[in-house]
Computed example of a mutant assay.
Amino acid sequence: MVKIKITPDMLPVSEALLELEKKHIPHVLTLTATRLAQRVKKGELTVMAQRLDRPTRTTMNSLFVKIATKSKPAEVYFKDSWTSGIPADTYLQQTVRGGPRPHKRFEKSLISNGLMRAGQYAIPSPNVLDRHGNVSRGLMNKILSGLGAAESRRGYKANATGSKRSQRKGNARSYFSGVVDGTAGVWERKETAFGDAVRPVFVFSRSAPVYRTIFPFFKIANNICKANYSAEFRGAFADAMATAKP
Rank of each mutant, 00 (worst) to 15 (best):
A68D: 05
A122L: 09
R131V: 12
A244P: 12
E151F: 08
V180Y: 06
R57L: 10
V179Q: 04
W82A: 06
G85Y: 14
L144Y: 09
R131A: 03
A221P: 14
R154T: 13
S163Q: 04
Q93I: 05
F204A: 00
S112H: 11
Q94K: 07
F215D: 02
A193G: 15
A37C: 13
V128Q: 08
F233R: 03
M10A: 11
M140F: 05
N171R: 02
Q167A: 09
A240V: 07
S207N: 07
K79T: 03
D130Q: 01
Y121Q: 04
F217W: 15
I220R: 12
W187Q: 07
E21T: 11
F237Q: 00
A221I: 07
R105I: 08
P102I: 11
R165N: 11
I224D: 04
G85C: 09
G146V: 00
A197G: 05
P12E: 02
I86P: 02
S109G: 06
R105W: 07
R234A: 11
D130H: 02
A122T: 10
Y156W: 14
I123T: 09
S112G: 07
P73S: 01
V28H: 01
R212Y: 01
V203N: 08
R51K: 11
N223I: 06
D53S: 09
E15K: 11
N141A: 15
S145N: 09
F176E: 07
P126G: 02
A238D: 09
I214R: 14
L36E: 11
K226L: 10
Y121D: 00
L139M: 15
H24V: 01
R153S: 11
N134E: 12
H24R: 12
S125E: 13
A74L: 00
S109F: 08
A158H: 12
S84E: 11
A149C: 06
R173D: 09
R168Y: 12
D181K: 15
L144C: 08
L29A: 00
G155Y: 08
R131T: 07
K22N: 10
A227Q: 14
A193N: 13
E19D: 02
N222W: 09
V28M: 00
G43R: 12
E151N: 12
D53E: 08
D196Q: 10
T161M: 01
A118Y: 10
R199K: 13
A74H: 00
G182K: 12
D181I: 06
T161S: 12
D80P: 02
L92F: 06
A88K: 04
I25P: 04
A172H: 03
V96H: 02
E232F: 08
S174L: 12
K142I: 08
R39D: 15
R105Y: 06
G178N: 10
A33E: 10
H27Q: 08
L92A: 01
S84F: 15
T83F: 12
D239N: 09
L129Q: 01
A197L: 05
T32F: 03
I143L: 04
G138H: 13
